[in-house]
Design a protein around this nucleic acid. Structure first.
Lengths: 191, 191
DNA sequence: GTCTATAGTTTGATAGAC
DNA sequence: GTCTATCAAACTATAGAC
């Protein structure tokens, strides 16, 4: 992700700051300081702040695609792959405690702003949804695969929101354990 | 909630706007227009914007307390009371689809801003958490009552987040049904 | 490609007339 | 208690020198 060009460095810095502070709260001053350039230089690379947002969303979209492809190589069973999803919460637990879920918090913020890019942000949610749905289908739950995908996605969102609010990493651990058991139960008992 | 005094009208308008637009995004201009006063008159009632936020949080806290007390009168069984919590998602499904959960979205925003009132906002979460915990204790799950309370709270948060992102009311209905079944299972099988 | 300087707007907040 | 007028600061965005 960390390119040598200034444009890539701007996108990477904006990506992190949008996560930590939110989109609106992050000013050009914040990003410029993080990258080490002045505010004026900014507009050579991006004409509008919204263009940086779109670049960040595109970057996250690609990163998510790559991650999902990686999970497919980790395990041959849909159950194992679904556990990769649950494990993601554990791997990122420190960041989640500090800033919540990057997908959910951006989606919620852009929805409240009624921002044109809100749909782009939601496509990352859809990426997870479609991937999860396929795993449940492969597990023999073609009848309710989408419901199960949405259920699991919702649980991960709830865990991130509360872990963030209560600054509680241990809660993530407990819920991921319950989540793994639920995945196992759903995958072994076909609908 | 709707008092005749200007102060009450400001708090009510700010309450709605903080929910719909978020705290930062809501300007004094927004609130003044909603109430029908000028920006200048504002500072007679509140010295700082943060004071309005605290008043809104206090108002929501009281409203939540009253709602929880009401639920205790609706049913004598902890199972029935817990179903009131699930039913809350159904009752407010239109607003949730449009703006998410008022508790979760405010808590997340104030956390990102690192705002002093973020702890006050979290106390509303705690109100639910403690109430839910007591219901699970009354249902004979004193061993894991807090875990169950947090689990249910997290699920409601996740449902609200995704229903908001995907603009999907039907998803709320499906999840509330699953939630009721889960409550029934947990309450009948003591730990 | 990067800089300085600055325009133009909006914001939260204040002072003082009525 | 409500108003007008205004301040100081922050923001996005632009223009032009180097």
């Amino acid at each position: 992700m960390s390119g040598s060009g200034t444009r890539e460095r701007i996108v990477d810095a904006a990506n992190a700051l949008f996560y930590q502070l939110g989109f609106e709260q992050t000013s050009f001053t914040h990003i410029a300081e993080a990258v080490g350039i002045t505010r004026g230089n900014f507009y050579y690379h991006f004409k509008l702040k919204d263009e940086i947002l779109d670049a960040v969303i595109a970057s996250r979209f690609s990163a998510t695609e790559a991650m999902l492809e990686l999970w497919e190589q980790v395990s041959d069973s849909p159950e194992g792959r679904l556990c990769c999803f649950a494990e993601m919460l554990m791997v990122n637990r420190v960041k989640i405690r500090g800033y919540g879920c990057p997908v959910g918090t951006l989606s919620t913020e852009l929805a409240k702003l009624d921002h044109p890019s809100r749909h782009g942000a939601n496509e990352i949610f859809s990426l997870f949804r479609i991937w999860l749905r396929r795993q449940f289908e492969l597990a023999g739950r073609s009848g309710d695969a989408d419901d199960l995908a949405m259920h699991l996605l919702a649980r991960s969102q709830g865990v991130a929101t509360l872990a963030h609010a209560f600054q509680d990493e241990e809660f993530i651990r407990k819920e991921v354990k319950t989540m793994r058991e639920w995945i196992k139960g759903v995958c072994t008992c076909s609908s």
